[in-house]
Simulated scan of single mutants.
Amino acid sequence: MQQNTGRLFFALWPDDAVARQLADRQAALQGGRKTHARDFHLTLAFLGVQPLESLPDLRRVVDEIAFSPMSLILDRYGEFERQKVVWAGMGNVPQGLPELRRRLLDMPALARLAFRREAGFVPHVTLARKTHPPQMHFEAIDWRAARLALAESAGGEAVPRYRLLACREA
């Protein structure tokens, strides 16, 4: 019988200073289920549930992918209305971000896996669920994104909800 992992994803993970700034912007939200400060991340590829034997290859991706730090300016609240998700996003997405995502999706370890490769990439950091964005200015956050991670969703009511399986500072 094949054992499976939890829900896996690759993401850029902020440092503590950026996480604190995201938590400050999150404070303006009314109600909802707020993201724990240690769970803030920008998903590059959501892999879903994968076979346990794929983990060593996926961990290697973090070490092998060409990746340099990039400046991301989070400067706005956004919302996925249907899902009632409020997020922090960018007015100008640097070219390097979708390029990093493309390189990631082209890695041989991912090519062998079955998962949904979303065509529309909306780079964002989830701030809360089951709420709406505030009608106020978002004070910009300058994030030097230098940490790439493979993470797993712990599921349930665990806090923080995500566990880093591999992580690399560029």
Score class of each variant (00 low, 15 high):
1 M>I: 04
3 Q>D: 13
3 Q>W: 11
4 N>Y: 10
7 R>Y: 04
8 L>Y: 02
11 A>Q: 01
14 P>A: 07
17 A>F: 08
18 V>K: 08
19 A>Q: 14
21 Q>K: 10
21 Q>P: 05
22 L>F: 04
23 A>N: 04
23 A>W: 02
25 R>S: 13
29 L>Y: 01
30 Q>D: 12
38 R>Y: 04
40 F>S: 13
49 V>F: 11
55 L>P: 01
58 L>R: 08
60 R>E: 12
63 D>R: 10
64 E>Q: 15
66 A>E: 12
69 P>H: 08
74 L>A: 05
75 D>P: 02
76 R>D: 05
77 Y>H: 07
87 W>N: 02
88 A>I: 00
89 G>Y: 06
92 N>G: 06
96 G>M: 05
99 E>C: 06
102 R>V: 05
102 R>Q: 13
108 P>Q: 08
109 A>D: 10
109 A>I: 04
120 G>K: 15
121 F>V: 13
125 V>S: 07
125 V>M: 10
126 T>E: 08
126 T>C: 09
127 L>F: 00
131 T>G: 09
131 T>Q: 10
134 P>H: 14
136 M>R: 15
144 R>Q: 12
149 A>F: 01
157 E>M: 14
158 A>K: 14
160 P>L: 10
162 Y>G: 11
162 Y>R: 07
162 Y>M: 04
164 L>V: 00
165 L>G: 06
165 L>E: 03
